[in-house]
């Protein structure tokens, strides 16, 4: 199963390496499956627009997370630098992801899980945004186009997961690949800059044994196969948002 986890990742590189030379160095069984899969969804070159052929998503198996996802949150923090807000009070600081501890009131059953933007198919934050700054990219990634964000915070009112943060202070020296600034709203963007380069999101890389990332539209992708086998629940499934982030063990 976790062999499949890196399918997406590998497919890109197999294509990038190009042809026979690469194929010779890859394990034969692996290559066979790659060859079939690679034919279905061609790897995107960076001057081509993304399409809705793919929908990125992930399955987080919280039974395999020993720290409740704290390592994933740390990796996110490090990647995007969202812990750099010295002037803000605690309740104003940005949180792209956080670890939530859950305990059932009746049974006492408890677990912890990382919660971030769930990358809904029907995101309430996109519906309410007056300017269209809160957007879903064709490949299912929900993000904020900060160029046209006016900072009204309506999306924060609308999000059921409290996934969004408002930047309360001026920032400098942001990550060059992850612009963020005062007066705009921000949230997990599934490491869109990494995905475009064919790399895994930072949190996925930080928990390789617990998270499977890939294309939900491709029934043969690792994540689709795993979801089919293991299930995979949504937080607030009752809202019928069809989230791109699924959990096992909640």
């Amino acid at each position: 199963m976790s062999q499949n986890r890196v399918d997406e990742y590998r497919r890109k590189f197999v294509t990038a390496l190009g042809g026979v030379a690469a194929a010779a160095t890859v394990a034969p069984g692996f290559f066979l499956r790659e060859a079939q899969a690679a034919g279905e969804v061609p790897t995107r070159s960076l001057d081509q627009a993304v399409t809705s052929e793919k929908r990125w998503g992930m399955l987080i198996d919280i039974t395999k997370l020993t720290d409740g996802g704290a390592g994933m949150v740390e990796a996110c923090k490090k990647e995007h630098g969202w812990d750099n807000n010295p002037l803000s009070r605690d309740d104003q600081k940005a949180h792209w992801a956080r670890v939530v501890n859950v305990k059932d009131k009746l049974t006492g059953h408890s677990f912890s899980l990382p919660v971030m933007c769930q990358h809904c198919e029907n995101p309430p934050c996109v519906d309410v945004c007056p300017t269209g700054a809160s957007m879903k990219r064709a490949d299912g990634i929900v993000q904020v186009n900060k160029h046209i964000c006016i900072g009204c915070r309506y999306c924060m009112m609308a999000c059921p997961y409290k996934a969004r943060s408002f930047v309360h202070e001026p920032l400098t020296d942001q990550r060059s690949y992850s612009p963020r600034g005062m007066g705009t709203v921000e949230s997990c963007n599934m490491c869109i800059h990494r995905i475009d380069e064919g790399r895994l999101p930072a949190c996925v890389e930080a928990a390789p044994d617990a998270v499977i990332f890939g294309d939900l539209n491709d029934p043969n992708s690792a994540v689709s196969q795993a979801l089919k086998a293991m299930g995979g629940k949504q937080i607030r499934a009752d809202l019928n948002l069809n989230t791109g982030v699924r959990y096992h063990g909640i």
Binding site: R98, K103, L106, I235
Partner: peptide, 16 residues
């Protein structure tokens, strides 16, 4: 607070 898990107590370092 927002209800993430109905019927459960939730806590976090971010006011859940």
């Amino acid at each position: 607070p927002l209800t993430l898990f109905p019927g459960a107590e939730v806590s976090s370092d971010y006011f859940d």
